[in-house]
Amino acid sequence: MRPFHPSYIITALGQIIPFLWVTLATMAGTVFFGSLAGLMLARAKVRRRPLSRALANVYIYMTRCIPSIVLLFIIYYGLPELLLAFGININGFNKAFFVITTFSVLFAANMAEVFRSAYEAIDPGQREAALSAGLSEWEAFFRILLPQCVTVALPNFANALVNLMKEGSLAYTIGMVDVMGKGQLMIGMNNGSYSLEIYLALAILYWVLTVVLEKGFGYVEKRLSSGKRIVAA
């Protein structure tokens, strides 16, 4: 057994944390594009058009079955070749492009379910009550319906976001240097020594981020759902 240096965990964290913005920025990009696509999927699911609905269902079903790493490899190795056939060269693109594309494809399916369940939680009686109280359609939507939707959507969204962050750590496998990638680089440069310390540093970082995300969203949810809390009490 080689010696274990707990103090190196701190050293490693100091070198890894500057790359946190890469992880967070890729997540932000994925959330943006994935939510847009998810919104379209959710729309297709709740409308009564059989074809678009079936397509949305197939999309969501298939993405649920695909391991992230397999899709990441397909998009990283395959997409440039595919687009080259149409005369578009993306070989020099930033690695983040492939990562965001991959995880947007997967995240969209999660977001579709988030949007759909929020939409279905709307009670038509709430809108009617708001209108009968003299609110306009817009006021009814923004003051009554939207806050209710958001409380339904938030826990699912938080869940999807945490999953995205964890799955996103696979980006290092195509050479992107986020926190995980930096950790791997450090291990490579040290010829594999300090690997345990570095992995622990990464684990602590991810754990803290997860807890912060969950607690943060939990807090917002609590604030927004004050109406429900009274019922439960």
């Binding site: 964890k166 750590s169 345990l196 992995y199 622990l200 684990a203 991810y206 754990w207 997860t210």
Partner: peptide, 11 residues
């Protein structure tokens, strides 16, 4: 649940 599976594997 707060750490990526890939990290658990590597560690």
């Amino acid at each position: 649940r707060g750490t990526p599976v890939v990290l658990q594997i590597l560690f």
